[in-house]
Design a protein around this nucleic acid. Sequence first.
DNA 1: AGTGAAACCAGTCTCTC
DNA 2: GAGAGACTGGTTTCACT
Lengths: 144, 144
Amino acid sequence: MDDIDRNIIALLVEDARRSYGDIGSHVSLSAPSVKRRVDALRRSGAIEGFTAVLDHSAMGDATEALVELFYAPGTLLDEVAERLASHPQVVEAWSVTGDADAVARVRTHGNLELERLIMELQRDGSVVRTRTVVVLSRLVSRRN
Amino acid sequence: MDDIDRNIIALLVEDARRSYGDIGSHVSLSAPSVKRRVDALRRSGAIEGFTAVLDHSAMGDATEALVELFYAPGTLLDEVAERLASHPQVVEAWSVTGDADAVARVRTHGNLELERLIMELQRDGSVVRTRTVVVLSRLVSRRN
DNA sequence: AGTGAAACCAGTCTCTC
DNA sequence: GAGAGACTGGTTTCACT
């Protein structure tokens, strides 16, 4: 992983559909060389894949929230992760320090669906309590 | 925006470097038709772009945290957004309901840089208080 | 909105350095 | 590790439906 690799990654973060030749002209390398490096970066796991960046508000998912989750003592993380992942509205979730045990970032069509989701999360065994903050607006959103 | 568009979007979220022909064979459309739909989805803003998904822990950014920010009354959101965006470690930030005014998701090389970042955020005018939870592990991470 | 044909461009492989 | 060249396959435009 050298500066050229980091440069290639930056170019692919900016636009994942760039051609190898185009990337090569930015980093002074031929297309095959760029392909070899990108293949290596994917194999090493530094690049996990390529995805489309969506405008969810333009697609009906207008409500975002952070749900803090409090679990009963002795609850297993894998179990928690599995239950959270089973809800398609849970976009991201982390196990955290602090008074809550985990935080889930969720996206729903509106407050009604958010309310229903929170109740479902509370019914998923071992959840003792939740505390939700609703996202009013997105202040920063970096592509990486 | 019909079911075919939603299908095309799902395929591009899964792999943004898929060819139009490949997408077409999944949605029973020719490559040129798929291209026109993708162009339209980009123009409408539903698709904001295409990016590489990185493994940040494999690249030295091992520490993630959520920093709750409390601002002085009357602080302007645009100002807050600009100041947060000026720190490259701030990956995402939202204005939220609840007792905190905003939450920033940050990524640093380690606890030392996190500590320094929190102190810098506190020095950015109008910040009255911060409260930080450190991410212990990633439980769910959906690509969308 | 869609298709198929055609020209053009990009991806990928092998070989050589 | 990198480039050149050749082959394969993808992208894009156009005429047509």
